[in-house]
C-alpha cells in the first residue's frame, strides 16, 4: 500500500491533460447548446390534417362516455356522423388508407417530422461525443490523470475510473484520462445550466408557447384508433339519463331533508321550502 501512495503525478500531466480535457469539454458543450437551440428554432409545424385526426378521436371518445346526457335523436345523428357506412368520418378514413398498397404500414411511416426531429437531437449529442472520445483516446491514452482525494473506493470502480489502463495493482482512487473525460462529460450538465442559462432566449416562450400546442406524435397508426372508436360508438346502448330525472331529483331532495332532520333534532325549524315539501308529502 505504501508503495502505491508514493505514486507521484507529473505536474505536466495536470497542465496538458487534465485541464485541457475539462476546458475543451466546456467549450464543446457550450457549442452544442447553441447548435441545439439553432436547430430547434425551426419549430415544428403541425399540419391541420394531423390535428383534425387527433381531435376527431377525442371527440368520438367524448361521445362514447357522455352519450347518455343528450337526447336520442341527437345521439343518433352523431353516431351517423361518425360511423355511417358511406359517409361516416371514422369510416371514410379507413377506406382511404386501405386502398393504399402499403396499407397500415404506409400510414405508420407517413409522418416523418417526429423522426427527423429526434435524429437532429441525436446528431447534436452524438457526433461531438464520438469525436471527443476518439481525440482523448488517441492523444491521452494510458495517462493516469487524477487522484480522487477523499477515500479509497472498492475494486468495482476500477472499470469505471481506470478505463484504458489495464493494471491490477494500481489503486482504484487513481483516474485514467479517458475516465476523466467521462466524468467531465457527465458532470457538465449542472455547470452548463449555471453558465449558459442566464442567456435569455425570447424564442422559447414568447414565440412558441401560445403558437401551437404540440400534440405528441402518433405512435399507433391512426386507422387502428379510428376503428376502435367506431366500434365503441357502435356498441353504445343509448340510455337517456333524463328519462326519470324528475323522480330522481325529488328523491334526492327528500334524502337531503331527511339528513337535515336527523341532524337538527333541536327546535330550529327547517327552512320554509322544506316544510312545504313535507306538507305536500302528507297530503
Amino acid at each position: 500500500m505504501n508503495v502505491q501512495e508514493a505514486l507521484v503525478l507529473d505536474p505536466a500531466i495536470r497542465n496538458w491533460v487534465v485541464i485541457p480535457i475539462a476546458l475543451i469539454l466546456i467549450f464543446v458543450s457550450a457549442l452544442k447548446f447553441n447548435i441545439a437551440n439553432l436547430m430547434s428554432q425551426t419549430e415544428r409545424k403541425q399540419s391541420l390534417q394531423n390535428i383534425m385526426e387527433l381531435q376527431t378521436i377525442l371527440r368520438a371518445k367524448r361521445l362514447a362516455t357522455n352519450s347518455n346526457r343528450i337526447p336520442y335523436q341527437s345521439f343518433n345523428s352523431r353516431k351517423q356522423y361518425f360511423t355511417n357506412r358511406e359517409t361516416g368520418i371514422l369510416i371514410a378514413k379507413e377506406k382511404n388508407t386501405s386502398s393504399n398498397p402499403m396499407g397500415v404500414l404506409g400510414n405508420a411511416f407517413k409522418d416523418q417530422s417526429g423522426v427527423t426531429d429526434m435524429l437532429k437531437g441525436n446528431i447534436v449529442n452524438f457526433v461531438p461525443q464520438v469525436g471527443l472520445m476518439a481525440w482523448v483516446n488517441h492523444f491521452f491514452s494510458g495517462f493516469v490523470a487524477v487522484k480522487i482525494p477523499f477515500f479509497p473506493l472498492t475494486i468495482r470502480f476500477k472499470t469505471f475510473l481506470q478505463r484504458g489502463i489495464e493494471m491490477s495493482s494500481l489503486d482504484v482512487s487513481y483516474v485514467s484520462s479517458l475516465s476523466w473525460y467521462f466524468l467531465c462529460w457527465f458532470g457538465m450538465e449542472g455547470i452548463n445550466s449555471i453558465l449558459l442559462a442566464e442567456k435569455y432566449q425570447p424564442n422559447s416562450t414568447l414565440y412558441a408557447s401560445q403558437l401551437e400546442q404540440g400534440v405528441p406524435p402518433q405512435q399507433q397508426p391512426i386507422t387502428q384508433l379510428y376503428t376502435n372508436e367506431r366500434e365503441n360508438i357502435e356498441l353504445i346502448n343509448h340510455d337517456w339519463l333524463m328519462e326519470n330525472v324528475e323522480q330522481r331529483f325529488l328523491n334526492k331532495l327528500k334524502n337531503i331533508e331527511e339528513v337535515k332532520q336527523s341532524n337538527k333534532t333541536s327546535t330550529t325549524k327547517s327552512s320554509s321550502s322544506s316544510s312545504l315539501l313535507k306538507d305536500k308529502k302528507k297530503k
Partner: peptide, 21 residues
Amino acid sequence: LREPQIELYQWCQSELRAITA
C-alpha cells in the same frame, strides 16, 4: 302530466317563493 312532474312543479313554486322572501 306525470305525477313527479306535478310534484316538481309545486316544489318549484314554493321554492321560488321562499327564495324571494
